[in-house]
Design a protein around this nucleic acid. Structure first.
Lengths: 242, 242
DNA sequence: CTTCGACTTGAACAAAGTGCAAGTCACTTC
DNA sequence: GAAGTGACTTGCACTTTGTTCAAGTCGAAG
């Protein structure tokens, strides 16, 4: 009963669904095949390898974010919405962060990340060498938050999947970690509070807080430097900042 | 010819060496056993699982960073050195970032990250609810940079290992990425420049730049808010910042 | 009707994590 | 010193998962 022939788009789409649901570990070629009513190996006609498939899925997912319209909003709003979109995208697809960390995205990685980051600033009207660094700052902040969120999602997934036994495993890990952390006495109270945290609880507003603080800092650093120059290179005189 | 009995410390130490050299994918129980002159499964007497082993390795590695001395340095220097140490540690052990992203560290994760971040600020004299968010901001920024660096390291490792054939693979990936990125016309020039980048080249100073900008922003946000209050809770009034 | 190329399939291989029954060896106990 | 105990090691084998491959099926073109 083989239905209409498989398409690459269909495969990538299904892969994204599996990835969103179960993370990078949750995607395997056999279950993907099953979900597509095909043999696992049928996929290999359309896609070179699993790595390749994940890369394709990632490419597709990048396109979910869009550039804000410069005509209607000021740069800070534009940059804020762009960064927020980016963060939301990473949150929707936590596996993307995993893939980034384990190289799958890398090859192109450096190029694409920087591009999408630059989009934040170019879209907002910044150009030139300073924008490179400012954009990188914001992007790295977003990425860091995404990594945290991704790890969080992995945990929740595990907790949800294999019941009480997983909870126990996690309690173990916490206990084990505490042992190490106890060496930092000042942090003890805080750790204990964190261990009791309900992981399903609403997130705090630290992302927005940090984002705005960063914008403040960038604004003042860039403003302080702008009057003297108009060029494009000039990486040299940034060194004294540190 | 079985030598002296295996110890857990020895195993963890060797695991870290393998991880540093070849990343998370480079560590497998059989090669670990070989390196230890033991059967692969001997390790299982000392360690519960591979995940567990990676967690132990991570615990050990966290201890490489230390708290700055508050008596001798101002908060900003202290926080800078702490963040820089953290970043250097992640750079030395890129697999830690991978492990973070793929749950291995999570259980305690949220708790431990926040702790170590908080250390930046507690060590520097900040305390209270604002410190939570400020610390999280810095930490997330460091983490994001670390993720970028980790991906970069993965790529270099690949390039180094299996020769020209890998380079070709990477060229492919870049070409593929360009195709997608071409849809963002403003970014084209930048992408082409990035594709030509020598990955072995010296890093720019964007980490330091971003870090100082963030401190500027935090300083002004926190300073602006401090006069009115002295309490500890007070998450409510932060909302208006956004 | 034949052929060709797009596409699918099932068997099979290799790598890697892990459990298990059976050992070995040092040290304690009588 | 004999017997035993428990720490530790080993080889085998099972499982999951990515991937290859020879052998198909099927629809359209000639």
């Amino acid at each position: 009963m083989p239905r209409d022939t498989l398409t690459r788009e269909q495969i990538v789409q299904t892969a994204i669904e599996l990835l969103d649901a179960d993370g990078l570990e949750g995607l395997n070629m056999r279950s993907l095949g099953r979900r597509l009513d095909s043999a696992a190996t049928a996929v290999y006609w359309h896609v070179k390898s699993k790595d390749n498939l994940v890369t394709l899925a990632g490419d597709q997912v990048w396109d979910e974010i869009e550039l804000p319209d410069l005509q209607t909003v000021d740069w800070r709003s534009a940059a804020t919405s762009m960064a927020t979109d980016l963060y939301a995208m990473f949150t929707r697809h936590p596996w993307l962060v995993q893939a980034l960390a384990s190289h799958l995205f890398h090859g192109s990685g450096k190029a694409r990340h920087d591009d999408h980051t630059l989009a934040v600033y170019e879209a907002a009207g910044f150009v030139g060498a300073e924008a490179d660094q400012a954009a990188a700052t914001v992007f790295m902040f977003v990425l860091g938050n995404a990594l945290g969120e991704s790890a969080n999602a992995s945990l929740k997934r595990r907790l949800g999947r294999d019941g009480g036994d997983a909870e126990e495993r996690i309690r173990d890990t916490v206990a084990q970690a505490s042992e190490t952390a106890m060496r930092f006495p000042r942090l003890r109270a805080r750790l204990e509070a964190a261990a009791a945290t309900d992981y399903g609880a609403a997130p705090d507003n630290s992302f927005e807080f940090g984002l705005q603080a960063i914008f403040d800092g960038l604004e003042s650093q860039l403003a302080a430097r702008r009057p003297g120059r108009g060029g494009v290179s000039g990486r040299g005189d940034l060194d004294r900042v540190v």
